[in-house]
């Protein structure tokens, strides 16, 4: 099942489901890159509220999305990480240093607004 992507103004909002497979993660990356060009989006929000496991592959996928977005002149913010997932990630040794994070969708939108100067 593909990750649904919603266009809202200048932003794209991708909502990840709990059981995201590796191929779905790669699909998401390609879809986002295609749409960012098509809509000339200025920011991407990846909502992972429902995601219950973030392993090294998923983390790398999200990081790639963030880096690629940056190269296309837009910002990415990952929102909604659950406490247990955050705990497991740091235990695993993943810190997401160069990826912006925010508590939830609302905070993510506020972050992008501030970044894009609105």
């Amino acid at each position: 099942m593909a990750v649904p992507i919603l266009k809202q103004g200048d932003y794209l909002i991708a909502t990840i489901q709990s059981a995201m497979t590796d191929s779905e993660a790669e699909q998401l990356r390609d879809d986002l890159m295609e749409r960012i060009g098509r809509y000339r989006s200025r920011g991407i929000i990846v909502d992972i509220t429902a995601l219950d496991v973030m392993d090294s592959f998923a983390a790398r996928s999200l990081r790639n999305i963030a880096h690629m977005t940056l190269l296309r002149g837009a910002d990415t913010v990952v929102v909604g990480m659950q406490p247990e997932v955050a705990f497991a990630m740091v235990q695993l040794g993943l810190t997401f240093e160069d990826v912006h994070t925010a508590l939830d969708l609302e905070e993510g939108l506020a972050f992008l607004d501030a970044r894009t100067g609105r």
């Binding site: 590796d22 219950d52 496991v53 973030m54 392993d55 090294s56 592959f57 406490p83 247990e84 997932v85 705990f87 497991a88 235990q91 695993l92």
Partner: peptide
């Protein structure tokens, strides 16, 4: 605990991959 269950699931994900 919910946290430990998440750690187990994450570790399984790594070895399965």
């Amino acid at each position: 605990s919910h946290t430990d269950a998440t750690l187990v699931a994450t570790a399984i994900s790594e070895v399965a991959r």
